[in-house]
Every structure is written in C-alpha cells, then in structure tokens.
Design a binder for these strands. Sequence first.
DNA 1: TCACGTGTTATATTATACATATAACAGTAC
DNA 2: GTACTGTTATATGTATAATATAACACGTGA
Lengths: 122, 122
Amino acid sequence: MLIKIDFSSDEAIYQQLCNQIILGIATADLEEGQALPSVRQMADDIGINMHTVNKAYSILRQEGFVKMDRRRGAIISVDVDALRARAQLEKDLRKLLAQARCRNMTRMELHRMVDSIYDDYE
Amino acid sequence: MLIKIDFSSDEAIYQQLCNQIILGIATADLEEGQALPSVRQMADDIGINMHTVNKAYSILRQEGFVKMDRRRGAIISVDVDALRARAQLEKDLRKLLAQARCRNMTRMELHRMVDSIYDDYE
DNA sequence: TCACGTGTTATATTATACATATAACAGTAC
DNA sequence: GTACTGTTATATGTATAATATAACACGTGA
C-alpha cells in the first residue's frame, strides 16, 4: 500500500493518512484482517514522526476501521454498523450537497458522480 | 436568517458560519442580491468577534458565494461556474464515498440519501 | 531468560491556526 | 461632518499539529 503525503497541503498529515487508508479499504487494496505497517515503520516509510502515525491509527480505531493487536499491530477490521459514523456521514453529505445545489448541480449529475466513484471500487 | 453556533463543537466558528450561509443559499432562504448583516452586526447578533465573521465572509467571497459592495456590505452572488469549487467538491465527495463504501452502503442507498436531502431544497 | 518488535504514554518544543481585543484606515451615503 | 460599510494592523491567549526523546507493558521467539 503506497501512501503519498502532500506536505504543502493545508490538510493535516494524520488526516491525509487516515483518508488514504480508508480509501485503500474501499478499493479493497487493504483487506479485512490485513496488518498495517507498524507506527515506526510507516513513519520511516513516509518520512514523518511516529506520533503522527499513531494519531492516525488511533482515530481509525476509534472510528471502527482497524483493531489493535498487541502482537501484530493495527489490523484492518471494519465495523460496518458504526452508528455514529453513518450519522456523521449524512451530516457531511448534507454540507456537501448544499454547495452542490448552489452550483446548480442536479440530482442526476450527483447520481452519475456517485456511480462513477463507486465504479472504482469494483 | 437565523444563525446558530455550537460553541462546544470541534468545528471552527467561522466554518460553521460559512456552512450555514451556504445552506441558506441552497434552501433559497438567502436569495441572489440579498445583503448579509454587516460583520459588526452579525458578530453582535451571535455573540462572537467581528474578525471571525470577517473571515467567514472573506472565504465566502473567495469561493464565489458573495460579492463585496462598499455601500451595502456582503451581497449574495453565486458564481455557478466556479471551477475550483466543482473540482474540490468532487474530491470531498470521493473521501466521503470511501467511508460510505466501507460501511457497505450501496449506490441505491446513496442515491436515496441525495434525493432526500435535495427534497429539502424544493 | 533475554532480546526484539508491538502499541502506549509522558514530557517538552516549535509552529501554526482559532478567536479575541483594540485601533485605525478608506471608501460610500445622507 | 457623521455614520455606516469592509479592510488592515498589531497583540494576546488558547488550542492543535508535528516534532523529538524517552520510557513502559505486552507478546513472540531464539
């Protein structure tokens, strides 16, 4: 799994890391049960601090994307029914669609965009 | 237009303000040409600092939701064809859908969610 | 037992962002 | 001139982000 951090981005490094791992799970690049590199290894690989990786892993655990294993480290384990996550997801979508509406995007355009993005997952 | 700020939220005040104004435009609660309260008035109304409102207005201008008028202040004026905005919107949607996919949400569920949210705009 | 690799925790430092406060400036309207 | 716009400047306190060094508890395997 190749991680690419944009150091000139205004998005926090730990946030970029979270997003890319979630994307990896969505695209089946990362599979259930698979172990992520250790915090130290991942930090070395992408040239950042161990604690920044640790923060990302902690958030992924809290949001139900991985579980921690004393022996193997962070293991992909998606909690499909994470209720808070679904609720937050709808809130975020609502903000996004308010912007889309302001740009005169139609339902059909959005449906097509959703389908287009979902095509990458199969 | 009633603005409600959650001071215990982890979302920045200026960001909440931006979101609510964009939502107001989407729901036609705020109409093209309409003037927003002055930065000082808005700050007084919701009990925050003038500069926080000013930051929100500046971002709304930069993203093409309002234009500044020396005489009247901030005027709703949506740039429908803001290219950067559409590109950013697709990036944000991509992040959101990666999470949705991890939660096993189907295209159809998302289509229904989009339609449901869009129903509030009409 | 002992060395090694896990995540975790503690403490400290630097830099940046958020929100506030006070003040002044440059236009526009009456 | 007076009053209202947004804008800019400077400063302060708080919070977060990212770094650095160090130590700890647990599990594995030689």
